[in-house]
Design a protein around this nucleic acid. Structure first.
Lengths: 339, 339
DNA sequence: TTGTAAGCGTTATCAC
DNA sequence: GTGATAACGCTTACAA
């Protein structure tokens, strides 16, 4: 199949001619940017409809200096959490005149920097950075003068606008709940070793222990990478070490699923033999067996908030970094330990 | 915080002046569009780097008539399947010079039509329509002359380029497998009543029965809506009707999760008491207990294919509608029925 | 209120 | 090879 240019696109010049007015007048009624005489206004609108005119956004952008787009940098790893944020951004921009334009950072710093560069080259009016690890300075440099919101990441510098989860308190919430239920030997499957979210959740775990005047058993701390597979590995490792534990706090729901499966394969039941708590509250977590107790991260909501923030910043508004708190969602994967 | 215009953007005119050549020459070296003298070429490149020049994509688009963007229409319902397709599209475009720009159709025809209009107004060079229900004629009208690929939907007209799952054969595969395992009373939880995917999978179910010279029990056919909740409802309904069934074919994995949970709550085990098969093979399905037997839809891969197809069409290439076949993924949620 | 005209930053078409 | 110069389609002073 061949794609021709079709008929020549209709421009405001055509409209102007048909309506018997000037280009500027057409522009004015189209943008409600000045009052025009009712009859001319009507003529323009009619011509617009009759000719099936749709304004060329590109030309408009060039002339006005605003592209009506916001750049979104994602990290395409298929993590339910990050995906949900992207979806939230698309949804949040839905009712505005701005469209999101995506680039993929693949969790690799150089790719991320390139991607931001590409977005900047497209003259986006705002930028939403989801996760990623681009250094603060680099962001400042590339996005200087450009409204920018960083989601799911907290950059200490007050130059940046961030919307991030309070992972420390999230980890604390989960662990405290386990402690309250009577657990003392609580294993933790950590996320990626240097990933800030993982580090923070672990800090929350320790904090809960400290507060209770207890010390976690270091042998019960095992590393993972947020994948289901790593949950399986972690449990197998724990079991092979032959250590006693009555509960597991997994880095995220996905690794909790893996842990649950590994436990099941060893004939151990959740929560009868081992209690299990996750982190995220992804869609599926309420429907696995048993429904997973977890800490909810309002991912989609964070994406939505980010788009609101960016829209607001573009309009010249203010925004200050926000930490969103996790919420403990109690379902059925945690029970008091058997004596 | 205030966003100023910063320093004036550097343009090819600045480069031209610094390099001591004309704008045209700058354009030529930047686009490799003609041979220029080595020394001038070098001067341009140096100036480019020294001034930190990055071409204005908007101006380029206006002048060249190509925006280097492809519009992507999604249906933002948070279905893992559709989300994965979007992610695949982003990934597939990653290495090209094209950027995806998203719009949300929300599974509502009017919104979808508006969204396509917005994308067309942005002068996208190509269009990827994921799912949705815009009538064929409307698509032809709005996207006439614009390379367009439709994913996860099959429009019979040969005016369109589609990449879709063969849902009939998928439904057939699942059902035949159940039949082969010895099941005869196979309940089916259908998806949305008039959703083509649901209709097709059901057709496959019937086809497998026919082929085996059997007839499905109509009382074992219950409606759902692809949600986990509907899986729960369906099982409860089935159980309340007090009918005997030894297996369930769920519209998708999510509703299979729901079904599994409802079964569990009634004390019925999978696959001992009831076998269960899903559709999609989403990320989590391999890690629930028991790991779910299902029909894989290569969602991300379809998205990737779509982006390749659109890139190819933009370059003037050909493409013909492709049906991708589902793959039966055998795990542990299906077993022969107890006698 | 309305029209004229000068940009916006490139690419594309010519001559040279 | 290279440089003027005219598009590209719209916004936006600036006049009238």
């Amino acid at each position: 199949m061949w794609y021709g240019t079709g008929m020549k696109n209709v421009t405001i010049e055509d409209i102007a001619r048909v309506a018997g007015v000037s280009k500027s007048t057409v522009s004015r009624v189209l943008n409600h940017t000045a009052v025009v005489a009712p009859e001319k206004r009507k003529a323009v609108i009619e011509a617009t409809e009759r000719l099936g005119f749709s304004p060329n956004v590109v030309a408009r952008s060039l002339a006005s200096g605003r592209s009506m787009t916001v750049g979104v940098l994602t990290q395409l790893i298929g993590s339910p959490f990050y995906d949900a944020i992207s979806q939230g951004v698309i949804a949040g921009l839905g009712y505005s005149d701005y469209s999101p334009i995506f680039a993929d950072g693949q969790w690799q710093e150089t790719k991320q920097i390139d991607a931001i560069g590409a977005l900047v080259g497209r003259r986006v009016d705002g930028m939403v950075l989801i996760g990623g690890g681009v250094p603060s300075d680099e962001i400042s440099r590339q996005c200087s003068g450009l409204p920018t919101v960083i989601v799911a990441r907290n950059l200490p510098s007050d130059r940046h606008h961030c919307i991030y989860m309070d992972n420390v308190s999230g980890g604390y919430l989960a662990t405290r709940y386990l402690l309250q239920q009577g657990h003392r030997q609580i294993a933790i499957i950590r996320g990626l070793e240097h990933h800030p979210d993982a580090v923070d959740r672990f800090a929350g775990y320790q904090q809960a222990f400290n507060e209770a005047g207890l010390t976690p058993d270091p042998r019960l701390i095992v590393d993972g990478d947020f994948s289901a597979e790593s949950g399986i590995r972690a449990v197998n490792e724990l079991l092979s070490r032959d250590l006693a534990f009555t509960a597991i706090f997994a880095a995220n729901d996905l690794s909790a699923f893996g842990a649950r499966l590994a436990l099941d394969q060893r004939g151990m039941q959740v929560p009868r033999d081992v209690s299990l708590i996750g982190f995220d509250d992804q869609l599926e977590s309420a429907y696995v067996t048993p429904p997973l107790t977890t800490v909810r991260q309002p991912a989609r909501e964070m994406g939505r908030q980010a788009s609101e923030a960016i829209l607001n910043l573009i309009e010249g508004g203010e925004f200050s970094t926000q930490a969103v708190q996790g919420e403990l969602i109690i379902r059925q994967s945690v029970a008091p330990p058997l004596r």
